[in-house]
Simulated assay, not measured.
Amino acid sequence: MQKFKSAKESQVSITQLMLPSHSNFGGKVHGGHILNLMDQIAFACASKHSRTYCVTASVNKVDFLNPIEVGELVTLKASVNYTGRTSMVVGVRVESENIRSGEKKHCNSSYFTMVAKDSEGKSLAVPGLVIEEEQGVRRFTRSLERKNQSMSRSTKFDETQFKFQDHLGELDKENVEIILK
């Protein structure tokens, strides 16, 4: 196994025509179809980086920014942004293109945490990431920050440590009625 690899070595891109079978009841491409494609390209990118089978551990923040129309081309781009010991954060960008006008829209960006696995399902070490540009430093640091925030949220809202009384004041401004029994 290589000790370190650049993000460029494992970048993956796919383009697919959106068909009527991909649409939802509103006539737009179904978000679930796009999520499926995103998961597939994140898997391909992580597997290419680690040279082994990978599984999705988590998906961070999925915002659908623009709808995708049937008949548009959708391009997904994936790149490794962060490497831990056995995990990788793969950034996925989704763009649509109207084939008649050439107009392109950014539709989604998301971050998939992928974990390398051996044939027995045990986590495997992955090559580290060679960062070759400032953008890479920003992406790595941002992924590290998301990881730290996630750990903090898990601890802060742990069922055994959470004290609901501490948070009731925050809820006064929200669209909620609390009737505790």
Rank of each mutant, 00 (worst) to 15 (best):
K3N: 13
K8T: 11
K8R: 11
S10Q: 05
V12A: 10
I14T: 10
T15A: 14
Q16E: 15
L17Q: 13
M18Y: 09
H22F: 11
S23T: 15
S23Q: 11
F25N: 15
V29L: 03
H30L: 11
H30E: 12
G31A: 08
I34P: 02
N36A: 15
L37G: 04
D39Q: 09
A42S: 07
F43S: 09
C45K: 02
K48N: 12
R51W: 03
R51P: 00
Y53D: 03
C54P: 01
A57F: 03
A57S: 06
S58E: 05
D63C: 08
F64A: 02
P67L: 10
G71E: 13
E72T: 12
V74T: 15
V80Y: 07
V80C: 08
V80E: 06
R85C: 01
R85H: 07
T86H: 04
T86N: 07
S87Y: 03
V89P: 00
V92E: 07
V94L: 09
V94P: 07
V94N: 07
S96E: 12
I99D: 09
H106V: 05
C107I: 09
S109I: 08
S110R: 09
Y111C: 04
M114F: 01
M114K: 01
V115L: 02
K117R: 10
G121C: 14
G121E: 14
K122C: 09
K122E: 13
S123W: 04
L124H: 04
G128E: 06
G128T: 04
V130K: 13
E132K: 13
E133D: 10
R142C: 01
S143H: 00
L144R: 04
K147N: 01
N148I: 06
Q149R: 12
Q149G: 00
S150R: 11
M151K: 08
K156I: 14
F157W: 08
F157A: 03
T160I: 09
K163D: 12
K163E: 10
F164S: 04
D166S: 11
H167K: 11
E177S: 15
L180D: 15
